[in-house]
Structures are given as structure tokens and as C-alpha cells.
């Protein structure tokens, strides 16, 4: 399928349309809202479902060389993308080193909801994908934070970039124990341990309602993104705005080259490229508030959630699918 066919099919999917509804409602200042506790519960449900299903797939296939190589590629990308993003931002914008490092960390890490949206798009086309990509998503979450800390430290006088008395190890531990990561990884191992039998037992809860719940979460993401754009757009200069679109495309290209020799399936390649192109908006923003508190959250949250996430959801995923058709098996 061509990019245009994939994009037009994607744009009329319920997921994208619910996101658009939330975005439009927030921009129009509607009182539509999802309570914070409900949003957190839905996020945990999504982590549980995707983690469990990924674990079941690995139980079927076992640990393979391909899985280890793709995980290694994911870690490598998560380290490298922030470095490239940092220097690109410093070259094209007037952002401080701390702001540039904080933004770069978001683009090196991943967005699990973008990942879920990509897996649904791949499933919608009837393409299989490797279940171990859930584990790849989990290992790509934190290396970017380390990269960003090193970049910010290098650019700032000693002692001005790290939280008071805070070590990088303690920070990584906090990020690694973030509720979404614990739920994703924990469910992955439970799915792995219990296999298809375990899945059959809880499928009515974690499989059947999944798409509907995802639509509800995307409605919420649209509302939050719309509110962020309304309040935060004035903090984004044109070069920073352009970075929010161009950086995912660059990351996608690097990811495609990296997995070219590995032999991932077309569906798996699309999901991996999407992971590399996505930007975090749950784990990394919280980590940045601790590690680089001088960085302005209005910039990195608005850019990640208000620009890159909608772009990836609407146009990025079909584009990454089109690229995957050329690099996947």
C-alpha cells in the first residue's frame, strides 16, 4: 500500500478520530474532561494489556537472537537520538542547553501510547509483529535520560544541572520504577510465564475491550494535548515547532537503517520505527522535573504531546508503515 492509502485509512480510524475530538473539544474550551484517576487507571490497563500480550508472544517464540539484536538496537537509538536532537536544537534555536537537553531526552525515549496505536494500525492491516517489541519499548525508555543528563552536565558549570544531592543512579531507579514501566514489564513477565493458557483466562478483560478503552484514552490525550497547545503554544518558536515534526522523521530514518540487516517482519519494523520516532510524555517529563528542574516544562510537554504525538498518530504511523514495507521481511 502507498503512503497516501495508508494515511487516508489511518485518518478515519476511530482512534485518530477520538483523539481529534478531544483536541477540538479542548481548543473550543468545552467542559469535556476525563478525571485524573480515570486517566491513570486507563493508562495502567493499556500497559497491562500490551505487556501481557507481548509476554504471551515471547512464550510462544522463546528468546531469539533477533530479539536480543533488536533490543540492542533500541538501547543504542535511545542513547544516540538525544545527542543528535540536542545539537540540532542548539544549532537552530535559541534554547538554553538545559532546555535542549530536556527536549532531546523526550525524543530519545518512547511513547507507549504511540506504540500501542502503531500495533493497532499494523493489526488493522492484518500484519503480524514480533511480541518482544514490548520488551524493546521498555528498554528504550531510560537510556535517553542518561544521555540528556550527560549533555546538560557537559554544557553547564558543575553542580548546576542535577537535583540537590541526587545521583543519576537514583534517578534512573525512579524512572525504572515508574508505575507505567512496572506495569508494562510486570505484565510482560506474567504473560511470558502463563502463556496462551493465561491469556485465554483473562482475554475477555485485556483483549476484547482493548480498542474501545484505547479510544477513550486517546480522547483524553486529545483533551490534554489541546489544553497544552492553548496554553503552551506561545513558548514554541518556529524552529522548535519544526523540530517536533522533523526529529521523528529523522529518528525513523535512522531506525529503518539500523534494522535493515536484522530481518524484522514488516509489522515489527513499522512498530520499531514508530518507537524510535515517538517522544515520551509520561515517564521522561516527570524525570526531567527532578533531573533538570530549570528546563521549562511548557516547552517540552507542549512539543512532545501537542506537536509530535498528533503528528505521529495522524501521519507518522502510516509513513513508518510505508517505510517498513521496504525494510521489513
Amino acid at each position: 500500500m502507498s503512503f497516501l492509502e495508508l494515511a487516508s485509512q489511518n485518518l478515519v480510524s476511530p482512534m485518530v478520530l477520538f483523539f481529534a475530538l478531544g483536541l477540538a473539544a479542548a481548543l473550543a474550551r468545552s467542559d469535556l474532561s476525563i478525571p485524573e484517576a480515570v486517566a491513570k487507571t486507563i493508562a495502567l490497563y493499556l500497559m497491562m494489556s500490551i505487556g501481557f500480550k507481548g509476554g504471551v508472544e515471547v512464550a510462544k517464540s522463546g528468546i531469539t537472537t533477533l530479539m536480543l539484536l533488536v533490543m540492542l538496537a533500541g538501547v543504542l537509538l535511545s542513547f544516540i537520538i538525544p545527542v543528535i536532537g540536542f545539537f540540532a536544537l542548539r544549532a537552530v534555536s535559541r534554547l538554553s542547553a538545559v532546555d535542549a537537553a530536556a527536549i532531546a531526552a523526550h525524543y530519545g525515549s518512547i511513547s507507549i501510547v504511540t506504540f500501542v496505536a502503531a500495533t493497532e494500525a499494523v493489526r488493522g492491516l492484518g500484519l503480524p509483529f514480533e511480541g518482544f517489541l514490548v520488551a524493546v519499548a521498555a528498554v528504550m525508555e531510560t537510556p535517553a535520560i542518561l544521555s540528556a543528563l550527560l549533555l546538560a552536565r557537559r554544557a553547564q558549570p558543575a553542580g548546576q544541572t542535577q537535583g540537590e544531592g541526587e545521583s543519576a543512579g537514583a534517578l534512573i531507579r525512579e524512572v525504572g520504577l515508574n508505575s507505567s514501566v512496572v506495569m508494562l514489564v510486570g505484565s510482560f513477565f506474567i504473560g511470558w510465564a502463563t502463556g496462551a493458557k493465561g491469556l485465554a483466562m483473562i482475554a475477555p478483560f485485556i483483549v476484547d475491550p482493548f480498542r474501545g478503552v484505547l479510544c477513550l484514552f486517546l480522547l483524553d490525550m486529545g483533551l490534554v494535548a489541546g489544553r497544552g497547545m492553548r496554553e503552551g503554544a506561545r513558548h514554541l518558536s518556529p524552529p522548535v515547532l519544526a523540530f517536533g515534526i522533523l526529529m521523528p522523521l529523522f529518528s525513523a530514518a535512522v531506525a529503518a537503517l539500523l534494522i535493515l540487516p536484522l530481518g524484522l517482519s514488516v509489522g515489527g519494523a513499522a512498530v520499531f520505527i514508530t518507537l524510535a520516532a515517538s517522544a515520551s510524555y509520561i515517564a521522561v517529563p516527570a524525570a526531567m522535573r527532578l533531573a533538570l528542574p530549570e528546563a521549562k516544562p511548557a516547552i517540552y510537554l507542549t512539543l512532545s504531546l501537542g506537536v509530535t504525538f498528533p503528528f505521529n498518530l495522524a501521519l507518522g504511523i502510516p509513513l513508518y508503515l510505508a517505510i517498513a514495507q521496504r525494510v521489513g521481511l
Binding site: 483533551l223 489544553r227 503552551g232 509520561i282 517529563p285 516527570a286 522535573r289 511548557a298
Partner: peptide, 24 residues
């Protein structure tokens, strides 16, 4: 005590719908 919403130097903010801690 949880805080619902407010306004500061960088504009309005709200905890509604937030799945993560940043912004809350």
C-alpha cells in the same frame, strides 16, 4: 492534598486527564 487546577506565571494548568505526574 491533591490540587485540581490553577494559574501561574506560565499560564493556566489543570490536573484533569493527566496520566503522568509531570504537570500535576
Amino acid at each position: 492534598v491533591p490540587v485540581l487546577a490553577g494559574r501561574g506565571r506560565d499560564g493556566s494548568w489543570s490536573a484533569e486527564g493527566l496520566a503522568g505526574d509531570a504537570g500535576r
